[in-house]
Design a protein around this nucleic acid. Structure first.
Length: 313
DNA sequence: CGTTCATCCTGAGAGC
DNA sequence: TGCTCTCAGGATGAAC
């Protein structure tokens, strides 16, 4: 479940079904799912045994469980769903999925948490939690602004050390739009690259980048620095808005690969304006939506509302 | 420093 | 039917 809204749907599911429980036993099928945990799957299972799950947090597309070990040591279990990862809450006796990579049993004997991942780009690893101190006070002066719709998840235990390179996402209190705009304005590269760069702003993927660009009437290959700061601001605000709308619909699901912890799909695919809509009329001007290759994947846009930059490169 | 490229995987669908 | 080819919500590290 790639992008921010889908990951947030999963985080909420973890909050509802996993937080407050104690891990009795974790089991890993194969080594690939724990490849980012250097000591390996056996060590991970050993370390997880007996941990209490204090919270479920998210930054961008990364999730982590806040864990407290029996000796009081606090760590984060960082989980990334990659392209096809799912976290499912099911009875331990439920049929095993063909791409099941991990199971978590809890001391209350309730439902199991499972990690299922067809393409295995996802994974999990333990990380120490460190203070989220990226910005000094001076950097905040004149920045920030109002953020009425922020969910303000308290990262009370800090950020996993392994994802400190990931920038705050637009739904966090730590998100500073003015800083993102300034950094975009300094980039001489396609603006869509900037939207997709998780070190600049996290949570945006291929779907919501294209949707935000369409709303802002900007072609993704325009040089970021060529756009005015207000235009960049509108673009970032559209990205935030479209992800919030998608979250309200339970996320975007084209197929059964993208589901919440109960296996249910979201409905935002019905509200997409350009992504995956090659040949369909633009909702604003009626021009057929085009698909172009970009960064080894596809970009969708309206040829009329989003003209390509000057000379076709 | 920033940007590109290949790579990690499996399965669905198109085209032959 | 069965084969091949292309494509898919992502991140990373090496190579320019």
């Amino acid at each position: 479940m790639p992008e921010l809204p889908e990951v947030e749907v999963v985080r909420r599911g973890l909050e509802d079904h996993v937080v407050g429980r104690r891990i009795e036993e974790a089991a890993f099928i194969g080594a690939r799912v724990t490849r980012r945990h250097r000591p390996g799957p056996v060590d991970l299972a050993d370390q997880l045994r007996g941990n209490a799950v204090h919270g479920a947090q998210r930054r961008g597309k990364y999730l982590w469980l806040e864990l407290e070990a029996p000796d009081g040591h606090r760590q984060g279990l960082v989980i990334h769903l990659g392209m096809s990862g799912q976290l499912l809450v099911e009875a331990a006796g439920a049929p095993r999925q063909s791409h099941l990579h991990a199971t978590f049993d809890f001391s209350d004997g309730g439902p199991q948490l499972r990690f299922v991942d067809q393409r295995t780009f996802g994974g999990m690893a333990l990380a120490e939690l460190v203070p989220d101190g990226c910005l000094d006070d001076e950097a905040r002066v004149g920045g920030g602004g109002k953020d009425p719709h922020r969910s303000d998840l308290p990262h009370s235990w800090g950020i996993p050390e392994s994802i400190t390179h990931i920038a705050p996402d637009p739904l966090e209190a730590a998100f500073h739009q003015d800083e993102v705009i300034a950094r975009l304005k300094a980039r001489h590269t396609a603006v869509k690259r900037g939207l997709l760069d998780q070190r600049l702003v996290s949570g945006i993927g291929n779907i919501y980048a294209d949707e935000a660009l369409w709303r802002a009437r900007v072609h993704g290959e325009r040089d970021a620095a060529s756009l005015s700061k207000p235009a960049l601001g509108r673009l970032v605000e559209h990205a935030t808005a479209v992800m919030l709308e998608a979250l309200g619909q339970g996320g975007t699901s084209f197929d059964a690969l993208y589901v919440n912890v109960n296996g249910a799909s979201g409905f935002f695919d019905r509200s997409l304006d350009v992504y995956g809509r090659e040949g369909f009329p633009c909702g604003r001007c009626g021009t057929p939506i085009r698909r172009e290759a970009f960064m080894n994947r596809s970009s969708y846009s309206c040829p009329r509302c989003q003209p390509r930059p000057r000379p076709a490169p």
